[in-house]
């Protein structure tokens, strides 16, 4: 579904600072319907990486193939059309304060020139899907963080995308809300068969949500594989230290402790 080949991104030099190389040749394959996590510390390049997929950032070199097309070769005026195939969810929600929940979710369709009826047909079923039936005409200022992120997710889904890009979607939320949002995303992945790319700095998110994970450090992917395998036998120092942050018990080697640490919602992951 998505293939990054040797993607590099260098930010040009600014006054007084050297050019900054954010991505040094990233190779990553993401199959349709898969949830792939990209984990790393701040500055590892993971946000740049996800923005190279929908070309919010233009890769300096390399190819980004989405659904068979190398999108880096698309002319600039075709980018809006391409981006409508990808939904994106943000850490700080990025909802329009001037629009109600309904109108926020409707925005991508409005931008695409959909009619009122088409918009209603797409948005109405999304409200119950994300559990916001009763908030339809509320403004973002009236919602909690978790509810705002549900709006963000519904908005990303409204244009019926094939891919959902999640950029630190739970980093501004408390643990309980995080769990609910991750459950929702997992559920959406199962129901709609959406491909998901999940950027995070928390191993708990990877564990709860992802099928595969790529660990980033200094603009390169240092380790990549099935989540279970990475958790069982982390090889790279960065992976080990990220695991140590989240699951101190894990290093002691007992799975029971991990489950305890992360409580109920992860039970579905334990089998995988």
């Amino acid at each position: 579904m998505i293939r990054l080949s040797n993607v590099q991104k260098t930010y040009p030099a600014r006054r007084g600072s050297e050019p900054h190389k954010a991505l040094h040749g990233i190779n990553l394959d993401i199959a349709a319907g898969e949830i792939v996590g990209v984990i790393g510390r701040s500055g590892a390049g993971k946000s740049t990486l996800i923005r190279c997929i929908n070309l919010l950032e233009n890769p300096t070199s390399g190819a980004v193939v989405v659904d068979g097309t190398d999108v880096t070769t698309l002319p600039k005026r075709d980018l809006p059309l391409f981006r409508r195939q990808l939904g994106m969810v943000f850490q700080h929600f990025n909802l329009l304060s001037s629009r109600t929940v309904y109108d926020n979710i409707a925005l991508p369709l409005e931008l695409a020139g959909a009619s009122k009826a088409e918009i209603a047909a797409a948005v109405d079923p999304l409200l119950p899907l994300v559990g916001l039936d009763d908030k339809r005409d509320r403004y973002p200022a009236e919602l909690s963080g978790g509810q705002k992120q549900r709006v963000g997710i519904a908005r990303a889904l409204s244009s019926n995308p094939k891919v959902l890009l999640c950029d630190e979607v739970t980093s501004a939320l408390d643990p309980e809300t995080t769990r609910q949002i991750l459950t929702l995303l997992k559920d959406i992945n199962k129901r709609l068969g959406l491909t998901m790319v999940v950027i995070t700095h928390e191993m708990a998110v990877v564990k709860a949500l992802c099928d595969r994970v790529a660990v980033m450090d200094g603009g390169v992917i240092v380790e990549e594989g099935e989540v279970a395998g990475i958790f069982a036998a982390p090889k790279h120092a960065t992976t080990k230290s990220l695991l140590a942050d989240e699951f101190i018990e894990f290093r002691a080697g007992t799975d029971a402790n991990t489950a305890d640490h992360n409580t109920d919602d992860n039970s579905s992951r334990q089998e995988g």
Binding site: N94, L96, L111
Partner: peptide, 29 residues
């Protein structure tokens, strides 16, 4: 207006002029 909103609109496939009319002006109203 928070630059995150511009980014979000672009990610949704907004054309530059749409970012102005649908996002920047209503939010700056």
């Amino acid at each position: 207006v928070d630059s995150g909103l511009t980014e979000a609109a672009q990610a949704m496939g907004a054309r530059p002029l749409q970012v102005v009319t649908k996002v920047l002006l209503p939010e700056a109203l």
